[in-house]
Measured scan of single mutants.
Amino acid sequence: DYFTVDMEKGAKGFGFSIRGGREYKMDLYVLRLAEDGPAIRNGRMRVGDQIIEINGESTRDMTHARAIELIKSGGRRVRLLLKR
């Protein structure tokens, strides 16, 4: 199942961390959800969800650093296409 999650940044960021990336020879996944962060309050994202797109850009062969950069580059908002 594919689904989109739109979030607005909180005081401590978006409230999730990721693992994976090209340099680890793996796809990008949601690693952790911060307690009471925007990701957990949104209610749609879960640990283990695969991140397919960040702000419309495919994560295929994307490095971990580039993924972080893209998440931050959207300013106060981020849109993720996830797969569960």
Rank of each mutant, 00 (worst) to 15 (best):
D1W: 06
D1I: 03
D1R: 10
D1M: 03
Y2W: 15
Y2N: 15
Y2F: 15
Y2Q: 04
F3T: 05
F3W: 03
F3V: 08
F3C: 10
F3G: 02
T4K: 12
T4N: 12
T4F: 08
T4H: 03
T4L: 07
V5M: 04
V5H: 02
V5Y: 03
D6I: 03
D6Y: 05
D6M: 05
D6K: 11
D6R: 06
M7D: 02
M7G: 02
M7I: 15
M7L: 13
M7T: 03
E8M: 03
E8P: 05
E8G: 05
K9P: 07
K9Y: 04
K9F: 03
K9M: 11
G10P: 07
A11D: 06
A11C: 07
A11E: 07
A11Q: 15
A11L: 15
A11H: 13
A11M: 05
A11R: 15
K12H: 06
K12W: 05
K12C: 09
K12L: 06
K12T: 08
G13F: 02
G13S: 08
G13W: 02
G13D: 13
G13A: 04
F14I: 04
G15S: 02
G15T: 02
G15D: 03
G15I: 00
F16A: 01
F16P: 00
F16W: 02
F16G: 00
F16L: 06
F16C: 01
F16V: 03
S17V: 10
S17N: 07
S17E: 13
S17D: 14
S17A: 13
S17I: 11
S17P: 01
I18L: 14
I18W: 02
I18G: 01
I18Q: 01
R19T: 08
R19G: 14
R19Y: 09
R19P: 00
R19N: 15
R19L: 04
R19C: 03
G20K: 03
G20D: 02
G20H: 07
G21F: 01
G21Q: 02
G21Y: 02
G21C: 02
G21E: 02
G21M: 01
G21A: 02
G21V: 02
G21L: 01
G21P: 01
R22I: 05
R22Y: 03
R22L: 06
E23D: 11
E23T: 04
E23P: 06
Y24W: 10
Y24K: 15
Y24N: 14
Y24L: 13
K25N: 14
K25T: 07
K25A: 12
K25V: 07
K25D: 10
M26T: 12
M26H: 11
M26G: 12
M26S: 13
D27P: 12
D27T: 07
L28R: 01
L28E: 01
L28C: 03
L28W: 03
L28K: 01
Y29A: 11
Y29T: 14
Y29P: 01
Y29E: 15
Y29F: 14
Y29I: 15
Y29M: 10
V30N: 01
V30H: 00
V30A: 02
V30L: 06
V30M: 04
L31I: 14
L31P: 04
L31T: 13
R32I: 05
R32F: 07
R32G: 14
R32D: 14
R32Q: 09
R32T: 14
L33F: 08
L33R: 02
L33I: 15
L33P: 03
L33M: 14
L33T: 05
A34I: 10
A34G: 11
A34S: 14
E35W: 06
E35M: 09
D36Y: 07
D36V: 06
D36R: 08
G37R: 06
G37C: 10
G37Q: 09
G37T: 09
G37P: 05
G37V: 09
G37F: 06
P38K: 09
P38Y: 06
P38M: 07
P38I: 12
P38T: 09
A39S: 09
A39L: 05
A39Y: 04
A39V: 05
I40S: 14
R41K: 11
R41Q: 12
R41M: 15
R41T: 14
N42I: 09
N42E: 11
N42D: 13
N42H: 11
N42L: 11
G43L: 04
G43P: 11
G43R: 09
R44H: 15
R44D: 14
R44K: 15
M45H: 00
M45Q: 02
M45S: 02
R46Q: 12
R46H: 15
R46S: 13
R46V: 08
V47H: 10
V47E: 13
V47R: 07
V47S: 09
G48R: 04
G48F: 04
G48M: 05
G48A: 06
G48E: 07
D49C: 02
D49F: 00
D49W: 01
D49T: 02
D49K: 00
Q50G: 07
Q50S: 11
I51S: 00
I51M: 06
I51F: 09
I51C: 03
I51W: 01
I51H: 00
I51N: 01
I52L: 10
I52R: 13
I52H: 10
I52N: 05
I52P: 00
I52C: 14
E53W: 05
E53K: 10
E53V: 07
E53A: 10
E53D: 07
E53Q: 13
E53F: 05
I54W: 01
I54F: 00
I54S: 00
I54Q: 00
I54T: 01
I54M: 03
I54G: 00
N55H: 04
N55M: 04
N55K: 02
N55A: 04
N55C: 04
N55Y: 02
G56T: 07
G56F: 04
G56V: 00
E57Y: 13
E57Q: 14
E57A: 11
E57I: 13
E57R: 12
E57C: 12
S58I: 09
S58G: 10
S58Y: 07
S58A: 12
T59H: 02
T59S: 06
T59G: 04
T59P: 01
T59N: 02
T59C: 09
T59V: 08
R60W: 07
R60T: 14
R60C: 10
R60Q: 11
R60D: 12
R60E: 12
D61Y: 06
D61A: 08
D61V: 06
D61K: 08
D61M: 07
M62Y: 05
M62V: 09
T63V: 04
T63M: 07
T63N: 08
T63A: 11
T63I: 04
H64C: 09
H64D: 03
H64P: 03
A65D: 13
A65F: 06
A65R: 09
A65S: 10
A65L: 09
A65N: 10
A65T: 10
R66Y: 07
R66H: 09
A67T: 03
A67P: 00
A67S: 07
A67E: 00
A67N: 00
A67F: 05
A67H: 00
A67K: 00
I68V: 11
I68Q: 12
I68P: 00
I68A: 13
I68C: 07
I68H: 07
I68N: 11
E69D: 09
E69M: 12
L70K: 10
L70A: 10
L70M: 09
L70G: 06
L70R: 11
L70N: 09
I71F: 13
I71H: 01
I71E: 01
I71V: 12
K72G: 13
K72M: 12
K72H: 07
K72N: 14
S73R: 12
S73L: 13
S73G: 13
S73I: 08
S73Y: 09
G74M: 06
G74K: 11
G75Y: 06
G75P: 11
G75K: 12
G75T: 12
G75D: 14
G75R: 10
G75M: 06
G75C: 09
R76P: 13
R76L: 13
R76Y: 10
R76V: 12
R76M: 11
R77I: 11
R77S: 14
R77T: 13
R77E: 09
R77A: 08
R77L: 08
R77C: 11
R77N: 15
R77H: 12
R77P: 02
V78C: 08
V78I: 08
V78E: 00
V78Q: 03
V78R: 00
R79H: 15
R79E: 15
L80D: 00
L80G: 01
L80N: 00
L80C: 04
L80F: 05
L81R: 14
L81S: 13
L81F: 06
L82Y: 01
L82I: 07
L82A: 04
L82W: 00
L82R: 00
L82F: 04
K83W: 14
K83S: 15
K83I: 06
K83D: 09
K83L: 14
K83G: 15
K83V: 09
R84H: 15
R84Y: 03
R84F: 02
R84W: 03
R84A: 11
R84C: 07
R84I: 02
R84S: 14
